[in-house]
Design a protein around this nucleic acid. Structure first.
Lengths: 198, 198
DNA sequence: AGCATTTTTCACCGGCGGGTGTATAAAAGA
DNA sequence: TCTTTTATACACCCGCCGGTGAAAAATGCT
């Protein structure tokens, strides 16, 4: 019927996400996206509408990737304190890998002006609440296992949510990796000791 | 001898700082600065050179103001755990006041592209290390008072540095104030318990 | 008053921002 | 082969960006 596309939409989206990830929305120009994806101007607009729409798609992709890599382990039926600890340690360790210095795209986005737009805000809020629910589930189960029905799972889940988001935000700071590791380990010590004894 | 200025340089600097504070460096245009200060284009360039130079001055002003408001209490000769706690609580409480949702200018700056420029990087680093030293001093004194010479003042100071910067960064996030208060209180609980007992 | 000096006003510059219109190229069906 | 449909290449649009030039206005000094 017509001329076929010369690019794979999913791969382009992945590259675009990488660009937003490292520079943020406001500081990514359409020229940057062309460079990152290899697409021409018009092909880009034909396929994705505009910069904003592409960004929303990138946010969704990121949420599904990171949900899989980090949150899924804590959302498992039998997840407990061990899973919380390993996930958090993986996050900090990942800072040393590819794109690691970039932290979490959604956490950064939450601090950009574009986060005021409803379609963005909704995505940020739902990701954040997914984080909190994941912690609540795992921590709650750990407390149940130790037969502490009246324990502060709410408080601890909210605390760990703050820690997780902080780690992502601190990742883009000149603070040394040592300090981040120490920060995380102390937070986990606190979590552990509050679970051990009320 | 010559025509006098129609503005007070210090007041203008303060207003400019406010603008950078709420929007950051990259997202503040010279037009924004004109609006915020009331100056005309050329007056502005005559007085401050350019946007970058003005920003450096704003950073210095901010460091001295915040150093006074927060760090000074912990840097006092006899400061201990009580001062650490009250300073941190003040920071979180300040989020509800004027400019409160903006957190700390220097913390935000550390995550902007301009932080790569040496003159900026140096200011950020020195402010961060001042924070860490302030914590180290107060926590160290508290530990001495309780006769714990072999205690982990280093670790705890680094931890609290992470907490302080996190609070500033989280301030610009859609997270609820409740969550921030809880995050801080748990961190202080951890600090207190690690000081109490090794 | 007249001059020297500085500040202010305002028009202007080239460059880059997001986004579009047009012409051409490539495929499928007839 | 010819038509239809869609994708590409590329020139182009206007508005905002940081920064500047030139002339007017306001002062102190003589």
């Amino acid at each position: 019927m017509a001329r076929p596309r010369e690019f794979d939409e999913e791969e382009v989206l992945t590259r675009a996400m990488g660009q937003f990830w490292s520079a943020g929305y406001a500081l990514t120009s359409v020229a940057d996206l062309e460079r990152a994806t290899g697409l021409g101007r018009k092909s880009f607009y034909n396929a994705f509408g505009n910069k904003r729409t592409l960004f929303l798609a990138a946010l969704d992709l990121f949420a599904s990737i990171c949900g899989e890599r980090y949150l899924a382990a804590m959302e498992a039926e039998d997840a407990g304190l061990a899973e919380v600890e390993s996930v958090m340690r993986r996050m900090v360790a990942d800072r040393e890998g590819e794109n690691g210095e970039n932290g979490c795209l959604i956490c950064h986005t939450s601090r950009e002006p574009i986060a005021d737009e409803p379609e963005v805000k909704q995505r940020v809020d739902s990701y954040f609440s997914r984080i909190e629910k994941a912690f609540h589930g795992a921590i709650g189960r750990e407390l149940e296992r130790r037969r502490r029905p009246d324990s502060p799972a709410d408080e601890l889940a909210a605390f760990m949510t703050g820690v997780l988001i902080s780690v992502s935000l601190l990742a883009r700071t000149p603070l040394e990796q040592d300090l981040l590791v120490n920060y995380l380990e102390q937070s986990l010590t606190h979590l552990g000791s509050r679970i051990d004894s009320t």
